[in-house]
Amino acid sequence: MVIPRKKRVIPDGLWIKCEACNGLIYRKAMVERSYVCPVCDYHFRIPARERIRITLDEGSFQELWPNMEPTDPLNFKDRISYSERVRMEQERTGLKDAVLVGTGAIHSRKIVFGVTDSNFIMGSMGSVVGEKISRAATTAQEMKVPVVIISGSGGGARMHEGMFSLMQMAKTSAAISRLKEAGGVFISVLTDPTMGGVMASYASLGDIILAEPGALIGFAGPRVIEQTIKKTLPEGFQTSEFLLEHGFLDMIVSRQDMRRELARLIDFMVGPPSGLPINIETTPTITTLGEEISEKNKNGIMED
């Protein structure tokens, strides 16, 4: 479990203040740009349903196991009980737990799709998230289609379900392991934030690992590290750009390019869908040296 930073929910209102550049953005313009700041390219955190809307072909998502809900195996209580917390989070987010899983398509390429919502108990992984991610992998294996999971979890393994949560790390990894051994393909997309037990299990096990720009990604939370080493952390620490530089990502993909890039990757990994004309842009892309990724950090995308 990781200590959260301040909540980053998109506020209501016609105008939105960008958390990164402080610019005022017309809400509609930002929604059209998939919640990316037109001024500084900051990628806002978005709810799971919005993620589905901007990632999958319109109307293609068929949710699987929509009725799965958490229980309270430890009878956990802090200042409020876990059951009460779940009820409140469900009411607030309209979700049963922090994950949505289903079948869908990206540019007509069929996939099994999963997304965690960093806004539901910090996107943490308890039994429901673990079970649904595992079933997603197993279903992809049965359907012989790739599985794409977009993770956003500041919470890692969920405290309120104790060791059951920790064991979801092994469970999801077991499902991914089976998928891979059966020849299946798993693309893991990391978004702001992906930390702790989620990052130390299935999210790290993608055949391909992508991240959105400027996302916080790591094992230990930045505050925990700061408290331990009693130093301020270097700028850009634990960002997507930091991970790319250290060899832990295949690529950083802007949210607006995500659909196209996923489709291109799927075509390379499992072949394009038969009978379908190539309906996406396929220009070779290569990093231009000198246009260093760290340049992006200076644009004020980083925070804290």
């Binding site: 990894s173 990052m199 130390a200 094992f219 590290i225 080493i229 270097p234 930091f242």
Partner: peptide
Amino acid sequence: GANPDIGAEERGQAYAIAENILQMLR
């Protein structure tokens, strides 16, 4: 717990643990 530290993150703490979990399953 695993070391919460700059170097550990630079060298992929999360990846190292995930890889161990996967390989121990196999």
